[in-house]
Design a protein around this nucleic acid. Structure first.
Lengths: 199, 199
DNA sequence: TCCCATGTAAACTCGTCAGTTTACTTTTTG
DNA sequence: CAAAAAGTAAACTGACGAGTTTACATGGGA
């Protein structure tokens, strides 16, 4: 069955490229099969329809993104370092050109399909991960945040505002150095606002 | 010429709705003429092609958005109030359902068309307006911001992270009350980080 | 080696869409 | 009022796309 898997991969790669360049409506199954070096019928053997192919790709994306998101608070380490680690849990994703190109592809469709949107949202709940982290920092007395959900949104907003959204409209993603500055400045602002002085 | 203008307006309104629901590729000129209660030929009398109609709409959007953006710093007023005014210069836009629905429409296409993206960017340079404002606050000694461009991005990021991007994926826009909270919390964070104590 | 699941190429159906054409009516204006 | 400008309805052209069908090839497990 090595062949089938190989073909499957070729189709998915080609479909990602095609959907990203043309959007769902603009993409053509003929072109996808051509790009995948595979006959059209083979595409339909692997995926029932254009829609099914698109959904499979979003699943694939959600899976890849989710694998990035693991971070928990260590109360014994310096709080600034811990917040920087938290920042990097997002920064890693935003500096990965592959992940970003997929996010970009899905975003265009998501704007028009609220169902797909809420589905993707559920599978990419970054805010809740950050909130959980911040709850722990509050419990240990390192930060004083009256509303950790707001805090999480602000933290993520500060990073995305400079490392994500501006990159949506160009080719490049943020470099490692850029992201490092963004995260440090985010943490500085966050500590000015919510810090308790406890290291 | 009152009739021609009337028809023109009908077409643009219908086209905004259609493009927003279906995207550029998915939109149909037949359906646009139907929605506009106008014959198809009339649409083509007003706009040479689908592309031309879309471009006209983005121009129209850029114009409406630009008209929102006017705010300058008054050094004699309390700094917190001034920053809140600055926040509202953006907040007004983000709480206007009409403006938001147009932004949403264009965004999907912009993700696929870097030329259109840079064109829209130039016509909606919010960051520079905020930077100019912040430069003035630094000059008057009210704030201490080492890098006002970064500061402007952070300020805008804090607002958009909660008042704009989350709303992109749903129907509603932020309410006035929501936006008020968002702006106040943004200003609080900003003053914690960059405030000099001078009122 | 045989067989069947899988792959291939190419033609085909049927629908839709951008844009045009035709024959006619309404509105504006000189 | 008369003619020019703008609008209308409906049919038409040519292209393209999703998904199917047909007839044939291939490769890996029994």
């Amino acid at each position: 069955m090595a062949l089938a898997e190989q073909k499957n991969k070729q189709i998915i790669e080609a479909a990602i490229a095609e959907f990203q360049e043309k959007g769902f409506a603009g993409a053509s199954m003929d072109r996808i099969s051509e790009r995948a070096q595979v006959s059209k019928r083979t595409v339909y053997n692997h995926f029932e329809s254009k829609e099914a192919l698109f959904k499979a790709i979003t699943e694939c994306l959600a899976g890849r993104v989710q694998s990035y998101l693991h971070v928990s608070f260590d109360p014994k380490a310096p709080i600034r370092d811990e917040l920087i680690r938290l920042g990097w849990s997002q920064g890693k994703l935003l500096t990965d050109p592959c992940a970003m190109s997929m996010v970009k592809m899905v975003l265009g469709e998501v704007l028009r399909d609220p169902d797909l949107a809420s589905h993707m949202n559920k599978r990419m709940e970054m805010v809740m991960i950050i909130k959980t982290f911040l709850d722990a920092t509050v419990k240990s007395g390192h930060l004083n945040i009256p509303d950790t959900l707001t805090g999480a949104e602000q933290f993520l907003g500060l990073i995305k505002a400079r490392g994500f959204y501006p990159k949506m409209f160009g080719e490049a993603v943020a470099t490692h150095e850029e992201m490092e500055r963004i995260i440090e400045e985010t943490v500085d602002m966050f500590l000015s606002r919510y810090g308790t002085g406890k290291a």
